[in-house]
Design a protein around this nucleic acid. Structure first.
Length: 607
RNA sequence: GCUGGUGUAGCUCAGUCGGCAGAGCAUCUCACUUGUAAUGAGACGGUCGUCGGUUCGAUUCCGACCACCAGCUCCA
């Protein structure tokens, strides 16, 4: 049982009353761990969206089996009713107090140096004193706040959940600590609700549903992060991509095709080699020429642009869209179902335009994204303006970054988009507006993106003839609508719990003959419906009707059409919806007209 | 890649304190011909993740590797 973690960029949504409660529970857990594992070193122990954690360096490894003992000791401490006492210490006193705690000393040092927070965010000014909280015999460096007394923690609403590794200050280069996750609520009922939510979320897991519904598989023989799609899974992919393709065409995008491999030299020019090499599959060499699988389309699209002859400003904006499967060398531990794969199909586009056109192109992309997300009822999303940070891999060119960032800011403001800023999250070639949607597990997924790039076109020598006859470098806008077909499908499966809207359902209707003698009529009905482009199956197995209904329900097929003597006589079908609702018998034409409207509208309803 | 966990039939899971491996569902065959969430009977099915070590003997113990799961880091 695992808790959903905090959101992208730690954008938590925490209840004010729960923060001190959970943070206090973290302290109690730290005390229990210190007692049970003498010599443990303390890291950070904050409240998070659905609970709390504390990081420790432990004298020996622990397993989930060790959690009950820690939890039991915590409950004793709670019942002992210790008050939380606040104190301010001078920097020197704090250094003495935490002499045996290297991570606490590190934090004291950071605070004294004018940093704060877990990741060393800059503070207004260096601290001259630090705050501690003490309960029982346990004192922690901590800015609070806390509840008054350990006895205020509801014992029956507390549970330790899991163990994980976590780097000190979140940095791969730092030592890895053991993180213990727990949760606490204001009542047992709230805890039970939360645990129930976790169970529900597990039932919607797209990896489980993908197998149960027969949509996709992974195989050791093909390799990790490389999904195999069944006929049912492929049709869903196809419909999703078709929909975006049609929408793009409607919005004035043109589609191109640029293959899967590229000479490595191109990535030296574009900057990918220096800034993105770790995410690329290793090189393939042929007679001295080195090739790479494409991790992105942009260099290919710019090369195509260059090959198409001399360009005029009159052609702009020139919009190259492509459904290309890209290959990215994700670290093994980062792979996860369809949401993180090594072969991903982006609904990618690169717009060549002038600086003056950035805003209107942004608006166009935004409208397209809004239309598509709305169709899928992804209303719970937010926009992150991802900017270049102090550190990390970014092409150095302050002037161009400045221009791109200003342009993106202006475009967001002009379109009245609510957004938050994230430093250090930009692509290596430019700032991004990322659309982040929440799934039912509470996880947030970066799906759509719009990026402004002043850097790559210059590096690849893209040019156009301007109105005054001069040669200029175009601006490149990168843009993806659903992000990748694979990730979007994974998120969709969880969004709909596998019960796809009718227009997307791999099987839209299954026909259930009551007895073998009804098979002929069932096939007739199927032919009629297939002629109208519905995806139809006939369940001709030697099973009872009840078994066929059950199986269709489990496959989340929208319509079950039962046919027996009565239906055959009147050219009707008895319609059962996957919701369990029985619409009774209706003329076949009436049913198909109803279903057609649902499909045409991309409605989430069934009738 | 790092920390911890897991790996037994297509799926869900038992089991073996080292002695030729089990259930339900699925699949196949036969019978049943059924009115809104599982008809019955029979059959088939696993070099117990892979490779190596210890042992008379390893699915079981040890090691390495691989994959998956939860985090961390990274990301569409």
């Amino acid at each position: 049982m695992q808790p959903p973690r905090g959101g992208i960029n730690g954008e938590e949504f925490m209840d004010d009353k729960l923060i001190p409660l959970r943070h206090s529970a973290a302290h109690v857990m730290a005390q229990a761990v210190m007692e049970l594992y003498p010599g443990a070193k303390l890291g950070f122990g904050p409240a998070i969206e659905d609970g709390f954690y504390y990081d420790f360096e432990l004298p020996r490894p622990i397993a989930p089996d060790d959690l009950p003992a820690i939890e039991a000791r915590m409950k004793e401490v709670i019942k002992e009713k210790h008050a939380f006492k606040h104190a301010e210490l001078s920097i020197d006193a704090a250094r003495q107090q935490f002499a045996a705690q290297p991570f606490k000393l590190d934090q004291v040092h950071a605070l004294a140096g004018g940093e704060m927070g877990e990741h060393g965010e800059a503070a207004a000014k260096p601290a001259t004193s630090v705050s501690t909280y003490t309960h029982a015999n346990f004192t922690d460096l901590c800015r609070g706040p806390h509840i008054a007394n350990t006895g205020d923690i509801p014992v029956d609403a507390l549970k330790l959940l899991s163990i994980a590794g976590a780097y000190w200050r979140g940095d791969e280069k730092n030592p890895q600590l053991t993180r213990i996750y727990g949760t606490v609520w204001q009542s047992k009922k709230e805890l039970d609700d939360y645990l129930w939510r976790l169970e529900e979320a597990k039932k919607r897991d797209h990896r489980k549903l993908g197998r149960e519904l027969g949509l996709f598989y992974f195989s050791d023989d093909v390799g990790p992060g490389l999904p195999l799609f069944t006929p049912k899974g492929e049709i869903v992919r196809h419909l999703m991509e078709d929909y975006v393709r049609e929408a793009q065409t409607k919005y004035g995008y043109q589609h191109v095709w640029t293959g899967h491999m590229v000479k490595e030299d191109l990535y030296h020019k574009s900057g990918h080699y220096d800034n993105y090499r770790d995410s690329m599959f290793p090189p393939m060499e042929d007679e001295g020429v080195v090739f790479r699988l494409k991790p992105m389309n942009c260099p290919s699209h710019m090369t195509l642009f260059n090959e198409m002859g001399k360009h005029s400003y009159r052609e702009f904006p020139l919009r190259f869209a492509e459904f290309a499967t890209l290959y990215r060398y994700e670290k093994r531990g980062e792979l996860s179902g369809l949401t993180r794969v090594r072969a991903l199909t982006q609904d990618d586009c690169h717009v060549f335009c002038t600086e003056d056109q950035i805003q209107s192109e942004f608006t166009l992309a935004l409208n397209l994204i809004r239309e598509v997300l709305d169709t899928y009822k992804f209303t719970d999303y937010k926009v992150r303006l991802s900017l270049r940070g102090e550190t990390g891999k970014f092409v150095q060119d302050d002037e161009k970054w400045d221009k791109a960032t200003k342009a993106l800011h202006a475009a967001l403001d002009a379109n009245k988009v609510d957004y938050f800023v994230a430093e250090g999250e930009a692509a290596f070639y430019g700032p991004k507006a990322d659309f982040i949607a929440k799934d039912v597990l509470g996880r947030e997924w970066q799906l759509s993106t719009i990026q402004v790039d002043f850097i790559q076109p210059a590096r690849l020598g893209c040019e156009y003839v301007a109105e005054d006859g001069s040669l200029r470098t175009p601006v490149l806008i990168h843009r993806a609508v659903t992000g990748s077909t694979e990730r979007f499908l994974g998120v969709l499966i969880e969004q709909f719990a596998g019960a796809f809207p009718v227009w997307l359902a791999p099987v839209q209707m299954t026909i259930i003959p009551i007895a073998d003698r009804h098979l002929e009529y069932a096939n007739f009905v199927a032919e009629q419906l297939r002629a109208q482009n519905f995806r139809v199956e006939v369940d001709a197995r030697a099973e009872r009707m009840n078994a066929k209904i059950r199986d269709a329900q489990l496959q989340k097929i929208p319509y079950m059409l039962v046919v027996g003597n009565k239906e055959e006589e009147t050219k009707a079908v008895a319609v059962r919806l996957r919701t369990g609702e029985d619409l009774k018998a209706m003329p076949l034409d009436q049913f198909s007209a109803m279903a057609k409207k649902i499909v045409d509208d991309k409605s989430l309803e069934l009738k």
